[in-house]
Design a protein around this nucleic acid. Structure first.
Lengths: 111, 111
DNA sequence: TCATCTATCTTGCACAACAAGATAATACCT
DNA sequence: AGGTATTATCTTGTTGTGCAAGATAGATGA
C-alpha cells in the first residue's frame, strides 16, 4: 500500500487500537496488519516515533512491563485527551473520505 | 482539511476530473472545492506541480488556448495511460479506505 | 557457542503539499 | 490615461512524516 496514502492516518490507527486496550509497540504492528485484512502495514521503525509523538502530546502514557520470559515490553495506555484526539481525527478522516468519494462517485465504475 | 491526509490523493482527484472533460488548472482548483462539498481544497501552487508530474508521466497532455478575452489558459486532456492510472489509483484508494475503516469500525461511534 | 526470535530504538532520506510571492494579460473604474 | 482588481500560470524554499537500514539486547533452543 502506497506510503503517501498512509500519511496522517497512523496516529488515528494507533489511538483507535489503544482505545480498545493497552498494547505494546510490536503488538500494534501485528494488530494493524491483521485488523485491516492485510491491507495496511506499518514498520516498527515507523511506529515507535509515532508513539513518541503521541506521548509528548499527552495522548498516551507508557508503562514498562518486565516479563517472566522474554524481552521487556513498553505498554501504552490512552489518556482522556487521547480519546478526544481520536474522535477528532476520526471525524476528520470521515470528512476527508466523504469529500474524496464525492468526487470519485461520478465515475462509471464508482462502487 | 489536514495537509497530510491529502497526500497521494491529489493525482487521483485530478485524473478523475480530467476523465470527465478537458480542464485548465485554475478551473480545477474551483472544481475540487465545489465537487467535494467544500471538504477538500487545493492551492494552485500545489496543483501546477502535480500537473507537471502527470504530464511527464504521460497521463495528461496540455494545450494552450488563447481566449478572445482574458489570460491564455492551459487546458489538460487525459490520455489512455492516464485513464488506466486513474483506475489503478481508484482501486488503491478503495483498498486503503476499506483497510482503515476495518480498524475504525469496531469503535462504538463507528458510523 | 551460535543462530533465531522478540522487542525497542536511532539516523538519514525522500517527497509531496504548502506558503509566499512573482509574473503577465486583461477588465473595470474614475 | 492611470490605477486597481481579477484571472491565470509558475517558482522557490520549508516542513512533516513514513520508511529503509541498521543497532541493541535479552531469551531460547540447537
Amino acid at each position: 500500500m502506497s506510503r503517501e496514502l498512509k500519511r496522517g492516518t497512523i496516529e488515528l490507527v494507533l489511538l483507535t487500537l489503544l482505545e480498545e486496550r493497552e498494547r505494546y509497540g510490536y503488538e500494534i504492528v501485528a494488530a494493524i496488519e491483521e485488523r485491516s485484512g492485510g491491507r495496511l502495514a506499518v514498520r516498527d521503525g515507523t511506529l515507535y516515533p509515532v508513539l513518541y509523538r503521541l506521548e509528548e502530546a499527552g495522548f498516551v502514557e507508557p508503562r514498562w512491563e518486565t516479563q517472566q520470559r522474554g524481552v521487556p515490553r513498553k505498554y501504552y495506555r490512552i489518556t482522556e485527551e487521547g480519546k478526544e484526539e481520536s474522535r477528532r481525527l476520526r471525524t476528520e478522516w470521515r470528512e476527508f473520505a466523504a469529500g474524496l468519494d464525492a468526487i470519485l462517485d461520478r465515475m462509471e465504475d464508482s462502487r
